[in-house]
Nucleic acid binder design. Sequence first.
DNA 1: CTTTCAGGT
DNA 2: TGGGACCTGAAAG
Length: 584
Amino acid sequence: MAAEPTRPPSQETASLVKRLAGPSTGKAGLAKDQEDINRIIADVSKGSKFYENEKKKDKELTKKIEHILHLRDELTKRPGVDLPKIEASLRKLESERDLSQTIVHFDLDSFFASVEVLNDPTLAGKPFIVGGSVVSTASYEARKYGVRSGMASFIAKKLCPQLITISHGFSDYSEMSHKVMAICKRYDPSLCPAGCDEGYLNITAYCAEHDLSADECVEHLRSAVFAETKLTVSAGIAPNTMLAKICSDKNKPNGQFHLPFNSEAITSFMRDLPIRRVPGIGRVSERLLESIGIKTCGDIYTYRATISLMDKQFGLLHLLRTHLGIASNSVQPPQREERKSIGAERTFPPLADKQKILEKLDEVCVELESDMEETQWTGRTITLKYKLDSFEVFTRAKSHNRWISKKEDLFAVGQELLLPELPLSIRLIGLRVTKLKDLREPDPSIGIKRFFETTNSSSPNKKRKVSPSRQDELNGDPPIEDDTLPTLLPLFQSDGPQNTEPTSSRSVKPDSEAPRETHTCPVCEKEVTTENQTLNEHLDLCLNRNAIRQVQGEIKPVKLARAAPKQGDIWEQWMKKASGSKRT
DNA sequence: CTTTCAGGT
DNA sequence: TGGGACCTGAAAG
């Protein structure tokens, strides 16, 4: 074996070499010899199935970029860029900038690795990783060699032969995580965890009550965490969550960074910020933006005309907000009803035998059933996911008119989706349930129902909006009992948290006199008389209007994928891992 | 609407 | 030896 990487026929494109280095490369500060490191990674990877798949994906992205550039050139030929309108948007955004809230993002420094050092102090100062076949966390020593989370462990070993590997001790992490979260919660009871080792706080009230500056408050927090857990934490202080998150990286490890709370400072902070630092911009979006010249958030302004022409692809408004450093400043614990899906999946050495594959499917079903049971969800559409030994991923889904949560049902549906695909050689199988129903809150639409009830009580036209497919509900399957006007519900919810529910509808029922009561329409907030006819007509109209507005894209369409804003329930995931795994 | 897929963490 | 597991939202049909 030649230890020296010979570098002749390396035909990788720069983008592929970079891609192979892994998703987290480039997010944090990269080593000076990153080029060499990437070269080694590419050489070690060469020829593997994983490598070939990455190459294929890279090629597809390159093609997509060509297409985008072509489209840009076509669009540029014609007029149609309304620069004054963009300026107006910017002014409007600027005028709405809210600097009144002090938001903190905190982030434990190499969390898993730090916990392991506490368990075994002899690890301190050594290059080691926590992980299995994939690196979860690399110690700072290991990072010097280019080892990064998400990297295959055997690659990490190549980069750093003396690397020590520690397997996960999830129960330890969970315990520490809970401690840290509890401490942070003292500063804001509405803390929003963003993983096991990070989270957001709004410390505005705490600072006011304790007569503290934001810096002092965060210093307190960090020293409290250290005193009580011996873990160091970094933090960012800024007027919104996006900025706070970026700032928490600024003085890592064991530091904090406070962005000045004024428009000029923020705008100049954004100007040179690499677009990749923005939460939600991953390596694909980075490349897409780079292709039209955008490397930093300042470039967004420079290329605003291009973005505007390609609003559909890039999402002008969101990028303008990013350029200005404007984002949400509300910090809320994740709401249960925000969850959209629940699933389980498993990777294993490639399998081609039908029986063995079905065994894996069964394992997944068992796990999923218990998750759904614990968290009290059921759902009606099932998605099967499988990954070939070539690393290509496929999904197959089917919706049903019944609620599914038992492992037998999951297995039956999963099998039904899988069998037609065989024969296959696969390395992963997973199931995901969507179109969820919350078994904990049997009737989440109580407010809405109440609204209809109080207004419709004596009405014979009660059957409005009964789903048409209801009739052909078949063969003794338990029907979906909870008819919550499925098409209407999202509209009410999407109205935002402020605007909770029609409080007026609750109090209106004197029941005797007052023949002409009015309600506040939950959609447009106009006053409407409660006569059935009028009310229903109004609602139909109003709901329709909203639906049309959405379709017409007044609600932003974006091709640049956005990060999952708030993941379902990260917390439960961690609880699960902690309880389900023991160190071996 | 339902299914498939890409993207991010 | 060895390349994860979650989740969301948009595109496509």
